[in-house]
């Protein structure tokens, strides 16, 4: 570029005008944000929300208290105990304490569970109003949706 052309570009503020036009284009473009909580973004199936336990088709717990998740958890979130029951060969979980404050949502427990009893859920609303709610006990691990919210913080205001 010749010296004259460069001088003219500098004098007429070409680079600044170019930047201004770019931002003007953004001013008139559709915005990328959505209005939460009226609209919630769709979550992908593998989203790592709150960990939940699941029941099998007969309504019995899938968890067999094998303690694999307890052993593999890097931050020692679990405290599980099982006992023998007559109706099935595998153990029945009687204590399943999970500490939410220690969980790093790494997913190792989900990967290692042999019966796929513990899985991530799409629940990302984890506000609590009382400190002890951060410790989940065995029945709390099955709560989902609105019941879970009622347990954690008294439910969403609508």
């Amino acid at each position: 570029m010749t010296g004259l052309a460069r001088f003219l570009k500098k004098f007429f503020l070409v680079d600044i005008l170019r930047g201004l036009l770019i931002t003007l284009r953004y001013y008139f473009s559709p915005k990328v944000t959505i209005q939460y909580p009226e609209r919630v973004r769709e979550l992908p199936p593998r989203y790592k929300g709150l960990l939940r336990l699941h029941l099998d088709a007969k309504g019995e717990p899938l968890c067999i208290a094998c303690l694999a998740c307890q052993r593999i958890c890097p931050t020692h979130c679990f405290d599980i105990a099982g006992e023998r029951v007559p109706q099935r060969k595998t153990l029945w979980p009687v204590r399943y304490d999970w500490k939410l404050e220690r969980c790093t949502f790494c997913g190792l427990c989900v990967e290692i569970c042999p019966t796929s009893a513990i899985r991530f859920s799409p629940e990302f609303r984890m506000t609590l109003l009382e400190k002890d709610k951060v410790r989940f006990h065995y029945p709390d691990m099955y709560l989902e949706g609105e019941e879970l919210q009622k347990h954690l913080c008294g439910g969403c205001l609508e």
Binding site: L24, Y26, Y27, V32, T33
Partner: peptide
């Protein structure tokens, strides 16, 4: 508002 609209938010 204008700064937000330029930045792609509301």
């Amino acid at each position: 508002r204008v700064v937000a609209l330029i930045q792609g938010r509301l």
